[in-house]
């Protein structure tokens, strides 16, 4: 028996928003520790890794490890039926071919349940090596979303260049070029608005705008985002989801032909 209950359905709704542009289907691997999802997008240039820890749920029970293969567009349709303040419970029997979502309104006067067919997904699991990154940059998630959106108007790629002075985002194309430089913040009133850079050595890498924009669909999950970069390895874009886990996106850099 698997049962996971969240007091607010909004977290699950936001998680779905954060992955559904990249993935059409994915397996939620559930065990004692919580729920894990790892999947590559169809073109195999980015990978999504989601962790929701058992202790972040209001109630969590997983008697036996279970993999729930879900069509994310169907799951998204079902989650749209939940009010933001509704409690959501995901349930599945061992070896089940369906998963049930139960939504309860705050006053318990409305209880809805939706059963969804599970899919048998043939999965490729990738081993993500422990990496020491040359640069990590922490900044406001809304600021990062804005930068990606603004630079997308100029070209298909964004160059991210990190030095000890700060981080520079650049794009160029037919209409011209754009550069946005952020200096490390000396002091801020709100911690989530700070720009914090840890740098071992400077790094400059180029990434596809389109994917960075997909990743920023996770903005509502966290006030801050962390970018980790090293030469010739994938960029990690991490959003920590308060009290329950994180979503990480890995994107392979573009290289010269």
């Amino acid at each position: 028996m698997f049962e996971a209950r969240l007091l607010r359905s909004s977290i699950l709704k936001k998680v779905l928003e954060a992955i559904k542009d990249l993935l059409t289907q994915a397996t939620f691997d559930c065990d004692d520790n919580g729920i894990q999802l790892q999947a590559m997008d169809n073109s195999h240039v980015s990978l999504v890794s989601l962790t929701l820890r058992a202790d972040g749920f209001d109630k969590y029970r997983c008697d036996r490890n279970i993999s729930l293969g879900m069509n994310l567009s169907s799951m998204s349709k079902i989650l749209k039926c939940a009010g933001d303040k509704d409690t959501v419970t995901m349930k599945a029997q061992d070896n089940a071919d369906t998963v049930t979502f139960v939504f309860e309104s705050p006053n318990q006067e409305k209880v809805s349940d939706y059963e969804m067919k599970l899919m048998n997904l043939d999965l490729e699991h990738l081993g993500i090596p422990e990496t020491e990154y040359s640069c990590t940059i922490r900044l406001s998630s809304a600021e990062f979303a804005r930068i990606c959106r603004d630079l997308s108007q100029f070209g298909e790629s964004i160059v991210i260049s990190c030095t000890k002075e700060g981080v520079r985002f650049s794009a160029s194309g037919d209409i011209g070029s754009a550069n946005i430089a952020l200096a490390q913040t000396a002091s801020v009133d709100k911690e989530e608005e700070a720009v914090v850079i840890e740098m071992e050595e400077p790094v400059t890498l180029t990434f596809a705008c389109q994917y960075l924009n997909y990743f920023t669909k996770a903005t509502s999950l966290s006030p801050q985002v962390q970018l980790s970069m090293s030469a010739d390895v994938p960029l990690v874009v991490e959003y920590r989801i308060p009290d329950i886990g994180h979503i990480r996106y890995y994107l392979a850099p573009k290289i010269d032909d």
Partner: peptide
């Protein structure tokens, strides 16, 4: 011209 590389070049298949 820049080429988007694939993740398989970086991560190990399990």
């Amino acid at each position: 011209p820049l080429t988007q590389t694939k993740l398989q070049n970086f991560f190990t298949q399990i």
